[in-house]
C-alpha cells in the first residue's frame, strides 16, 4: 500500500489572534504552531493501515520551512518518509489542494488521509477537492474505517447520526476525532525522526480563487449580568431569558 497523509502546520489552539500589519492575516509574532489536531488522527490511521496491509506511509505538508516541525512530529509517530512542498506564499484551499493532488498523482497513492479540517482557516475543503481533482472517491468526517480487498466501509458523522459509506480504493479519507487514539511518539521515534531526511519539492504556482480582503477580530462582548449566587436566582434568570432575551 502506498499511503499518503496530508498534514497542516497551524497556530496552536491557545493562540490569541491578532491581526497583522497587512490587515488581512494573523500576526505571527509569538504564535506557536502545531500539527493540526485532526491531521493527527489522519497520521494515526495511516500508520494503522500500514500495520494492517503493509506498505509505506509518506507524510506531506505544503508550506514554509517551519512546516518541517510538523513533518518531524509525524515522522516521530512512525511515518516512513516526509515531503515538504515548499512554498510560503498565501494560498487558498483550492491552490493548496491542486499542489497536493499533483503530488499524490505523481506518487501514485492507494489511499490518502487528511484531517476533516485545518484549524486555521477552518475550511474543510482540501480532502474533497483533492479527491475530485484526482477523480477518486472521498469520505469526510470519518469516525470509523474498514478496508477489505480494495473496498472501504466508512462511517461519517452527520447531524444526528452516522452515514455508513461504501466505496473503493484509491480514496481520500478525512479524519474526525473518534476515528482512533493517536499514539505518542516513542523516544526512539523522536530520535529516528531527527535523522530522517525531509524531501523538499517546489510545487507549481497556482492562483488562488478566494481572496481575503480584510481580517478583523470579532467585536468584543459587553460584560454580562450576574443574576445571582444561588438557586434562588433561577426564577430571575428564566424571566430574563423569557422577557429580555426572548429566547424561551
Amino acid at each position: 500500500m502506498k499511503i499518503l497523509v496530508f498534514v497542516n502546520h497551524v497556530p496552536d489552539t491557545e493562540t490569541k489572534v491578532k491581526v497583522g500589519a497587512d490587515a488581512k492575516s494573523i500576526d505571527p509574532t509569538g504564535v506557536n504552531y502545531m500539527l493540526s489536531p485532526y491531521d493527527e488522527f489522519g497520521v494515526e490511521e495511516g500508520l494503522k493501515t500500514k500495520q494492517q496491509l503493509g506498505g509505506e506511509v509518506v507524510v506531506v505538508s505544503l508550506g514554509g520551512e517551519t512546516n518541517k516541525e510538523t513533518l518531524r512530529k509525524a515522522l516521530a509517530m512512525g511515518c516512513d518518509k516526509a515531503v515538504l512542498l515548499k512554498d510560503s506564499s498565501v494560498r487558498d484551499s483550492y491552490s493548496v489542494a491542486r499542489s497536493l493532488a499533483d503530488y499524490a498523482k505523481e506518487y501514485g497513492a492507494d489511499i490518502i488521509f487528511c484531517g476533516k479540517q485545518s484549524i486555521d482557516y477552518d475550511d474543510a475543503q482540501v480532502g474533497a477537492l483533492v479527491a475530485e481533482m484526482l477523480g477518486i472517491p472521498s469520505v469526510s468526517v470519518v469516525v470509523k474505517l474498514e478496508i477489505k480487498e480494495g473496498s472501504i466501509t466508512a462511517e461519517r458523522e452527520i447531524e444526528g447520526g452516522h452515514e455508513v459509506v461504501v466505496s473503493k480504493l484509491p480514496a481520500v479519507i478525512c479524519a474526525q476525532k473518534g476515528l482512533n487514539e493517536p499514539r505518542y511518539p516513542s523516544l526512539k521515534g523522536i530520535m529516528d525522526a531527527k535523522r530522517k531526511l525531509i524531501e523538499e519539492k517546489i510545487p507549481a504556482a497556482v492562483e488562488s480563487r478566494v481572496e481575503v480582503i480584510a481580517m478583523s477580530n470579532p467585536p468584543a462582548k459587553a460584560q454580562g449580568k450576574i443574576v445571582g449566587t444561588d438557586a434562588s436566582a433561577a426564577a430571575e434568570l428564566v424571566r430574563l431569558l423569557h422577557e429580555e432575551a426572548k429566547v424561551l
Binding site: T13, V17, K24, I119, Y121, D122, E211, I213, A214, P218
Partner: peptide, 10 residues
C-alpha cells in the same frame, strides 16, 4: 477563521 477568533472578508 481560527475557530472564530478572527473574521475574514473574502
Amino acid at each position: 477563521v481560527y475557530a472564530g477568533k478572527g473574521l475574514v472578508d473574502v
